[in-house]
Amino acid sequence: MPRVGIIDYGMGNLRSVEKGLQKVGVEVTLCSEAEEFDSFDGLVLPGVGAFGDAMGHLRERGMDRALHHYIGSGRNLLGICLGLQMLFEYSEEHGRNEGLGVIPGKVRRLPGTVKVPHMGWNVLNVTRDVPLFEGVASGSRFYFVHSYYCEPSTDDWTIGTTPYGLEFTCAAGRENVWGLQFHPEKSSLLGLRILENFGRMVASG
């Protein structure tokens, strides 16, 4: 049975993600050591809070380098919320903060024309058929809580968008790297379906 690790870098509540994956039958372990990354078949990078703080916590633990190494090995990674944002080159939250630089582009504040934080159930417009969204109809709603959004600098990473002040990239992915701005673990049955899909992608390598 494939093992999925949830990266624990000392920020935020990992319990919801853990329980969501368990609910769909994925064997999941919290992982707080960069050295352990290699022992997992799949990794989830969750995250709440400020971008700069979270990146600082990852670097302190050597997890930034370990993540690059892990991604290079071809195994699947799923970033959730801030975990998606940290995959980008940098964020404009509280000045400029460097991210992991896996996805080209940056993270920007939502426009002043809409209420921020963007909190509640909004639409996922699927822009590419990917295994992560199997069984999920475009236009379905998912639960969002965030104030910043991802802006890839190329088109080839976006797999889903959401309209809120602008049509922003709410889901990105390519090969073995995936990320969601919304919270699948708080998005009821369809959210669990996405976690289940991820579990299956991990299982099939």
């Binding site: 963007h118 909190m119 509640g120 159930w121 909004n122 639409v123 709603r141 309209p163 809120y164």
Partner: peptide, 8 residues
């Protein structure tokens, strides 16, 4: 646009 919510 955000959906209106129903909360038991």
């Amino acid at each position: 646009m955000l959906a209106k919510r129903i909360i038991p």
